[in-house]
Protein backbone atom coordinates (compact mmCIF):
# COMPACT_ATOMS: atom_id res chain seq x y z
CA UNK A 1 0.00 0.00 0.00
CA UNK A 2 1.29 3.44 -0.92
CA UNK A 3 1.75 6.48 1.23
CA UNK A 4 -1.43 7.95 2.69
CA UNK A 5 -2.32 11.47 3.78
CA UNK A 6 -2.87 11.63 7.50
CA UNK A 7 -5.22 14.61 7.57
CA UNK A 8 -7.53 13.00 5.01
CA UNK A 9 -7.65 9.84 7.11
CA UNK A 10 -8.52 11.91 10.14
CA UNK A 11 -11.21 13.83 8.23
CA UNK A 12 -12.68 10.53 7.07
CA UNK A 13 -12.76 9.36 10.69
CA UNK A 14 -14.69 12.50 11.68
CA UNK A 15 -17.22 11.94 8.89
CA UNK A 16 -17.67 8.27 9.84
CA UNK A 17 -18.19 9.27 13.44
CA UNK A 18 -20.83 11.85 12.50
CA UNK A 19 -22.53 9.31 10.23
CA UNK A 20 -22.85 6.92 13.20
CA UNK A 21 -25.66 6.57 15.70
CA UNK A 22 -25.39 9.95 17.44
CA UNK A 23 -25.91 12.46 14.65
CA UNK A 24 -24.90 15.65 16.43
CA UNK A 25 -21.68 15.77 18.44
CA UNK A 26 -19.81 18.48 20.30
CA UNK A 27 -16.12 19.29 19.68
CA UNK A 28 -14.84 17.49 22.78
CA UNK A 29 -16.91 14.37 22.02
CA UNK A 30 -15.42 14.19 18.56
CA UNK A 31 -11.88 14.90 19.75
CA UNK A 32 -11.98 12.21 22.40
CA UNK A 33 -13.69 9.67 20.13
CA UNK A 34 -10.97 9.86 17.46
CA UNK A 35 -8.15 10.46 19.98
CA UNK A 36 -6.94 13.87 18.81
CA UNK A 37 -6.28 17.19 20.49
CA UNK A 38 -9.18 19.60 20.47
CA UNK A 39 -7.24 22.17 18.43
CA UNK A 40 -6.41 19.63 15.71
CA UNK A 41 -10.00 18.38 15.66
CA UNK A 42 -11.30 21.92 15.43
CA UNK A 43 -9.07 22.55 12.42
CA UNK A 44 -10.41 19.44 10.70
CA UNK A 45 -14.00 20.41 11.43
CA UNK A 46 -13.50 23.96 10.22
CA UNK A 47 -12.10 22.74 6.90
CA UNK A 48 -14.88 20.19 6.46
CA UNK A 49 -17.38 22.91 7.31
CA UNK A 50 -15.96 25.22 4.65
CA UNK A 51 -16.38 22.46 2.08
CA UNK A 52 -19.96 21.90 3.21
CA UNK A 53 -19.33 18.33 4.41
CA UNK A 54 -20.05 19.28 8.01
CA UNK A 55 -22.50 21.77 9.49
CA UNK A 56 -22.50 23.34 12.92
CA UNK A 57 -25.80 23.83 14.70
CA UNK A 58 -25.89 27.53 15.61
CA UNK A 59 -27.86 26.92 18.81
CA UNK A 60 -25.95 24.09 20.47
CA UNK A 61 -22.61 24.46 18.66
CA UNK A 62 -22.72 20.74 17.87
CA UNK A 63 -21.59 19.30 14.53
CA UNK A 64 -23.47 17.17 12.03
CA UNK A 65 -23.07 15.94 8.44
CA UNK A 66 -23.52 18.66 5.81
CA UNK A 67 -25.72 18.93 2.75
CA UNK A 68 -22.74 18.64 0.41
CA UNK A 69 -22.42 14.94 1.19
CA UNK A 70 -25.99 14.41 0.06
CA UNK A 71 -25.24 16.27 -3.13
CA UNK A 72 -22.19 14.14 -3.85
CA UNK A 73 -24.24 10.99 -3.48
CA UNK A 74 -27.01 12.32 -5.67
CA UNK A 75 -25.30 14.90 -7.76
CA UNK A 76 -27.08 15.03 -11.08
CA UNK A 77 -30.06 17.33 -11.35
CA UNK A 78 -33.24 15.60 -12.43
CA UNK A 79 -34.40 17.19 -15.69
CA UNK A 80 -38.02 17.12 -14.55
CA UNK A 81 -37.00 18.97 -11.41
CA UNK A 82 -35.23 21.49 -13.65
CA UNK A 83 -38.43 21.96 -15.66
CA UNK A 84 -40.56 22.38 -12.54
CA UNK A 85 -38.17 25.07 -11.28
CA UNK A 86 -37.94 26.81 -14.64
CA UNK A 87 -41.67 26.88 -15.40
CA UNK A 88 -42.66 30.25 -13.95
CA UNK A 89 -39.56 32.01 -15.25
CA UNK A 90 -39.71 30.65 -18.77
CA UNK A 91 -43.41 31.54 -19.04
CA UNK A 92 -42.45 35.07 -18.18
CA UNK A 93 -39.50 35.00 -20.60
CA UNK A 94 -41.77 33.95 -23.46
CA UNK A 95 -44.27 36.67 -22.61
CA UNK A 96 -41.66 39.37 -22.17
CA UNK A 97 -39.76 38.47 -25.35
CA UNK A 98 -42.69 37.42 -27.53
CA UNK A 99 -40.66 34.38 -28.62
CA UNK A 100 -40.64 30.66 -27.85
CA UNK A 101 -38.55 29.71 -24.82
CA UNK A 102 -36.54 26.50 -24.36
CA UNK A 103 -34.55 24.79 -21.64
CA UNK A 104 -31.90 22.30 -22.77
CA UNK A 105 -29.42 19.96 -21.11
CA UNK A 106 -26.41 17.98 -22.37
CA UNK A 107 -27.42 14.53 -23.55
CA UNK A 108 -25.59 12.11 -25.84
CA UNK A 109 -23.31 14.72 -27.42
CA UNK A 110 -26.21 17.04 -28.14
CA UNK A 111 -28.81 19.27 -26.50
CA UNK A 112 -31.93 17.58 -25.17
CA UNK A 113 -34.91 19.95 -24.99
CA UNK A 114 -36.49 19.41 -21.57
CA UNK A 115 -38.89 22.34 -21.57
CA UNK A 116 -40.59 24.42 -24.25
CA UNK A 117 -42.94 27.37 -23.90
CA UNK A 118 -44.86 28.40 -27.01
CA UNK A 119 -44.39 31.77 -28.67
CA UNK A 120 -47.26 33.88 -27.28
CA UNK A 121 -49.25 34.39 -30.45
CA UNK A 122 -52.18 32.62 -32.00
CA UNK A 123 -50.10 30.39 -34.24
CA UNK A 124 -50.21 26.62 -34.20
CA UNK A 125 -47.15 25.21 -32.45
CA UNK A 126 -46.01 21.75 -31.45
CA UNK A 127 -44.38 20.87 -28.15
CA UNK A 128 -40.70 20.10 -28.81
CA UNK A 129 -39.86 18.53 -25.47
CA UNK A 130 -37.67 15.48 -26.07
CA UNK A 131 -36.17 16.81 -29.32
CA UNK A 132 -32.40 16.95 -29.83
CA UNK A 133 -30.45 19.95 -31.10
CA UNK A 134 -26.79 20.13 -32.16
CA UNK A 135 -24.20 21.34 -29.65
CA UNK A 136 -22.06 23.32 -32.08
CA UNK A 137 -24.60 25.45 -33.92
CA UNK A 138 -27.42 26.36 -31.53
CA UNK A 139 -27.29 29.01 -28.82
CA UNK A 140 -28.31 26.46 -26.17
CA UNK A 141 -25.59 24.09 -27.37
CA UNK A 142 -22.88 26.72 -27.45
CA UNK A 143 -23.69 27.85 -23.92
CA UNK A 144 -23.49 24.26 -22.67
CA UNK A 145 -20.27 23.63 -24.62
CA UNK A 146 -18.73 26.82 -23.26
CA UNK A 147 -19.56 26.25 -19.61
CA UNK A 148 -19.71 22.48 -19.16
CA UNK A 149 -16.25 20.87 -19.46
CA UNK A 150 -17.70 17.50 -20.48
CA UNK A 151 -19.70 19.08 -23.29
CA UNK A 152 -16.66 21.13 -24.28
CA UNK A 153 -14.54 18.01 -24.73
CA UNK A 154 -17.27 16.27 -26.67
CA UNK A 155 -17.87 19.12 -29.08
CA UNK A 156 -14.16 19.63 -29.72
CA UNK A 157 -13.67 15.90 -30.47
CA UNK A 158 -16.53 15.76 -32.94
CA UNK A 159 -16.46 17.09 -36.46
CA UNK A 160 -18.26 20.41 -36.78
CA UNK A 161 -20.70 19.61 -39.56
CA UNK A 162 -22.20 22.33 -41.72
CA UNK A 163 -25.96 22.55 -41.20
CA UNK A 164 -26.52 25.83 -43.01
CA UNK A 165 -24.14 28.04 -44.94
CA UNK A 166 -23.53 30.03 -41.78
CA UNK A 167 -22.58 27.15 -39.47
CA UNK A 168 -19.07 27.60 -38.07
CA UNK A 169 -17.10 24.48 -39.06
CA UNK A 170 -13.53 25.57 -38.35
CA UNK A 171 -12.54 24.32 -34.91
CA UNK A 172 -10.17 27.22 -34.24
CA UNK A 173 -12.86 29.80 -34.93
CA UNK A 174 -15.34 27.76 -32.96
CA UNK A 175 -13.04 27.57 -29.92
CA UNK A 176 -12.54 31.35 -30.03
CA UNK A 177 -16.32 31.81 -30.22
CA UNK A 178 -16.78 29.69 -27.11
CA UNK A 179 -14.26 31.88 -25.29
CA UNK A 180 -16.38 34.89 -26.18
CA UNK A 181 -19.47 33.08 -24.89
CA UNK A 182 -17.71 32.38 -21.60
CA UNK A 183 -16.52 35.98 -21.34
CA UNK A 184 -19.88 37.62 -21.93
CA UNK A 185 -22.11 34.95 -20.38
CA UNK A 186 -24.43 34.24 -23.29
CA UNK A 187 -24.44 32.71 -26.78
CA UNK A 188 -26.26 33.36 -30.00
CA UNK A 189 -27.07 31.54 -33.21
CA UNK A 190 -28.01 33.62 -36.23
CA UNK A 191 -29.02 31.30 -39.04
CA UNK A 192 -26.39 28.71 -38.10
CA UNK A 193 -28.93 25.94 -37.48
CA UNK A 194 -32.06 27.07 -39.30
CA UNK A 195 -32.09 29.62 -42.12
CA UNK A 196 -33.67 32.88 -41.04
CA UNK A 197 -33.94 31.84 -37.40
CA UNK A 198 -31.95 33.30 -34.53
CA UNK A 199 -31.61 32.27 -30.92
CA UNK A 200 -30.05 33.56 -27.70
CA UNK A 201 -29.23 31.47 -24.63
CA UNK A 202 -27.60 31.77 -21.21
CA UNK A 203 -26.36 29.20 -18.69
CA UNK A 204 -28.33 27.83 -15.74
CA UNK A 205 -26.03 27.05 -12.83
CA UNK A 206 -26.61 25.36 -9.51
CA UNK A 207 -25.59 26.37 -6.02
CA UNK A 208 -21.93 25.62 -6.66
CA UNK A 209 -21.95 27.55 -9.95
CA UNK A 210 -21.84 24.26 -11.86
CA UNK A 211 -23.63 24.45 -15.22
CA UNK A 212 -26.73 22.25 -15.35
CA UNK A 213 -28.27 23.44 -18.60
CA UNK A 214 -29.19 26.45 -20.68
CA UNK A 215 -32.27 28.56 -21.26
CA UNK A 216 -32.94 30.54 -24.40
CA UNK A 217 -35.38 31.95 -26.91
CA UNK A 218 -35.70 31.28 -30.62
CA UNK A 219 -37.42 33.34 -33.29
CA UNK A 220 -37.28 34.91 -36.72
CA UNK A 221 -34.09 36.88 -37.39
CA UNK A 222 -36.18 39.94 -38.31
CA UNK A 223 -37.72 40.05 -34.83
CA UNK A 224 -34.63 39.07 -32.91
CA UNK A 225 -32.23 41.56 -34.46
CA UNK A 226 -32.01 45.33 -34.59
CA UNK A 227 -29.97 46.06 -37.70
CA UNK A 228 -27.25 43.42 -37.68
CA UNK A 229 -27.13 43.04 -33.89
CA UNK A 230 -29.28 40.98 -31.58
CA UNK A 231 -31.81 43.10 -29.71
CA UNK A 232 -30.08 43.83 -26.37
CA UNK A 233 -33.44 43.76 -24.57
CA UNK A 234 -33.95 40.15 -25.64
CA UNK A 235 -30.45 39.24 -24.48
CA UNK A 236 -31.18 40.89 -21.13
CA UNK A 237 -34.48 39.03 -20.79
CA UNK A 238 -32.78 35.68 -21.42
CA UNK A 239 -30.01 36.40 -18.94
CA UNK A 240 -32.50 37.58 -16.30
CA UNK A 241 -34.43 34.36 -16.74
CA UNK A 242 -31.27 32.22 -16.47
CA UNK A 243 -30.32 34.02 -13.27
CA UNK A 244 -33.79 33.55 -11.79
CA UNK A 245 -33.84 29.82 -12.50
CA UNK A 246 -30.30 29.48 -11.14
CA UNK A 247 -31.30 31.33 -7.99
CA UNK A 248 -34.27 29.02 -7.61
CA UNK A 249 -32.00 25.98 -7.89
CA UNK A 250 -29.62 27.40 -5.32
CA UNK A 251 -32.44 27.87 -2.87
CA UNK A 252 -33.39 24.25 -3.37
CA UNK A 253 -33.98 21.35 -1.06
CA UNK A 254 -30.65 21.52 0.71
Amino acid sequence: MGRTIQSLERAAAVLRLLAGGERRLGLSDIASAIGLAKATTHGLLRTLQQEGFVEQDPGSGRYQLGAELLRLGNSYLDVHELRARALVWTDDLARASGEAAYVGVLHQRGVLIVHHVFRPDESRQVLEVGAMQPLHSTALGKVIAAFDPVAHNEVMEDELTAITERTVTDSGTFARNLELVRARGWASDVGETWDGVASVAAPIVDRRRMPVGAVGITGAVERMQIGSDLDPRLVAAVRDCARSVSRDLGAGRF
Binding site: A94, R95, V117, F118, P120, V126, L127
Partner: peptide, 11 residues
Protein backbone atom coordinates in the same frame (compact mmCIF):
# COMPACT_ATOMS: atom_id res chain seq x y z
CA UNK B 1 -59.78 39.17 -21.34
CA UNK B 2 -59.74 36.35 -23.87
CA UNK B 3 -57.26 38.41 -25.80
CA UNK B 4 -54.87 38.25 -22.83
CA UNK B 5 -54.95 34.47 -22.70
CA UNK B 6 -51.77 32.87 -24.02
CA UNK B 7 -51.06 29.24 -24.74
CA UNK B 8 -47.79 28.11 -23.14
CA UNK B 9 -48.01 24.46 -24.17
CA UNK B 10 -50.38 21.98 -25.75
CA UNK B 11 -50.47 18.19 -25.64
Amino acid sequence: LRHNWRRAAEW
